[in-house]
Design a protein around this nucleic acid. Sequence first.
DNA 1: AATAGACCTGGGTCC
DNA 2: AATGCCAGGTCTATA
Length: 376
Amino acid sequence: MKIWKKLKFPAQEFNLENTLVNGQCFNWRKIGDHHYEGVFSKYYVQVKRDNDAYVQYSTIPPNENPEKEQLFEDQFKSYLNYDANIPELYEHWAQKDKRFSQIAEPIHGVRCLRQDPWECTVSFICSQCNNIKRITQLLETLRKTVSQIVALNQQSQFGSEICEIDQDDGTRRKIYQFPTVEQLQTATEKQLRELMFGYRAKYLVAISKQIVDKGGQNWLESLRGQPNEKIREELTSLPGIGSKVADCIALFSLDCANSIPVDTHVFQIALKLGYVKGLKKDSSLNNKLYLQIVQAFRDKFGDKAGWAHQIMFAGDLKSFQEKISNSNSANTSAQNSKKRKIDEIKDQEEEKEEEEIKVQDVDTKRETRSKRRKLN
DNA sequence: AATAGACCTGGGTCC
DNA sequence: AATGCCAGGTCTATA
């Protein structure tokens, strides 16, 4: 029987869906309405929203005494950046940007997580030319198989198994911890390719070795709190990590809230919203432009610009598009007329300030495509 | 200094 | 049913 623990966490502070499956991490799965399961640290965890004010969580294994329970709660709160006041930040950001104010309600309660830097590193190496679903699947396979490889090499029966879960179809599923740097190092490129990691396999093997040589987990954690430039410099010297992945690791695991990972989504957002002036419509994302976009986000959103960026990023994801359009159609109510007026004023101000930049409208293109898909 | 291509795999797309 | 294209990027080789 599960023991559920309560945590005070209003929905505007923490929306499970908007936070756990928005592309910043890949260790959570939806298993019901407002209900998620995941592997966190040495635990299998379920989280669900209890009511407007509380979330509940349960762990396997359970924490057998109050001290351990407290330790876990502290660890989990730290992972959730519990002390950050998200609604307050939202309000601040919504005043800075019109697009942000439009998506603030449908994508409310997004928290940037404080992830384990090693898991985060592996996750974002896997993210290149990939999608959330497949990344999640790859990492699940990695937990399971590397654990077995380690067990095999050490002639030990157990790898990093956490528990077994009963499934609806009557079978049982084993849950494993995320492999440590040293554990992943024991896997070969060939083994990882067989697990469908593709060309990312060689990066993972090489990077495990290099990070072990630098001091492993401790070295990664020593980067916490360092300036963004320093972190970028260290991480991009490793194979398979460029600017974008380095900035993801910095933002999501190394306390670098002003880090702005510029991927194709963010690039498109910056083009569409005219964040960088004087762009040609077919400009390519080179290093100089990358840094200009980073600067534009910082100028606009301030010292936690990376957190704001994650919400803008989620707003561009296909899986969140429906939420936004539903919310926009609800915006016709009289309640929102005040908000619309504010938007109009902002519109006018922005038009005065900035020249119209003509870029192919990404949304339109996407809509046409999805219509076509539905017809088929 | 800047910019194509290659790279694994899988999924939507186009006849 | 079959084919080429592209995806949440990085690395390498070149006019």
